[in-house]
């Protein structure tokens, strides 16, 4: 058998290996040391954009989008959430980051093809700390967040839920209660613990400014209405 064929089979074996919790590659253990930036670039780029335009996620023609962009992670996530999640990653989007590649039609209706979903590798505590700290330094849009004038507060649950579900229609794609709501978008009952408040407000107002290929629509709300929705996410998180 030719060398090329052996290489091809080897590549298939590597690509075909599931990236589950129990069989994470060895290099995910033991810390990235001083070059955590190189570690992230080498290991995360396969599924995440680590600079604008990576994976050309702006194009609807690109199907293999496995995870969210990371180059503005420091503007988006809460560090304490990143630290925990990287050590015990749980799926946030029931149908994966790009649902069309994870659904199939059945006579009863479309279903999520669970076997096609990819698990995020588990990082040990030391590596998770290094990676989380590094990701929090990626803040290209800090000015955007600084412009937000948002004072989080709680809102009456029933009214806010009605607004989220019936009047704004967010429930078509997002769950505000586990098991209740659409499954194509990220779960929102955990959004407040995951995301920075100013990011939530800024993203809801202009999702395409953050992620040009996003599937999140714009609802053309005024700031007060956006703040009410963000407050709802805070309220359900603290319920």
């Amino acid at each position: 058998m030719s060398t090329a064929r052996w290489l091809f089979i080897g590549a298939l074996l590597v690509l075909g290996a599931p990236a589950g919790a129990d069989d994470s590659p060895r290099y995910f253990k033991g810390g990235a040391g001083t070059d955590v930036a190189a570690f992230v670039k080498e290991n995360c780029l396969a599924c995440h954009a680590v600079k604008p335009g990576d994976g050309a996620s702006h194009s609807p023609a690109i199907r293999a989008e496995l995870g969210p962009p990371l180059y503005y992670a420091g503007d988006k996530y809460r560090e304490e959430w990143l630290l925990e999640w990287l050590q015990a990653p749980e799926r946030i989007r029931p149908a994966g980051y790009y649902p069309p590649t994870h659904v199939r039609a059945t006579p009863e209706g479309d279903v999520i093809d669970e076997a096609s979903l990819v698990n995020h590798p588990v990082l040990d505590a030391k590596l998770a700390e290094e990676v989380a700290r590094y990701l929090m330094t990626l803040t290209p849009y800090a000015d955007r967040l600084a412009e937000e004038d948002y004072e989080p507060s709680t809102v009456p649950l029933r009214m806010a839920r009605l607004d989220f579900r019936r009047f704004k229609g967010c429930v078509a794609c997002h769950q505000d209660v586990k098991g209740e709501g659409g499954v194509s978008g990220p779960e929102l009952y955990s959004a407040w613990s995951r995301l920075q408040p100013e990011f939530i407000v800024s993203f809801v107002r202009s999702p395409g400014q953050w992620n040009p290929g996003t599937m999140m629509p714009v609802l053309e709300m005024n700031d007060a209405a956006i703040h009410r929705l963000a407050n709802y996410l805070k309220t359900i998180a603290e319920e």
Partner: peptide, 15 residues
Amino acid sequence: VQCHGVEGTGKGINA
């Protein structure tokens, strides 16, 4: 597709 379905029949995963 997320709402209208892979085959366009209105049976998407969100439906």
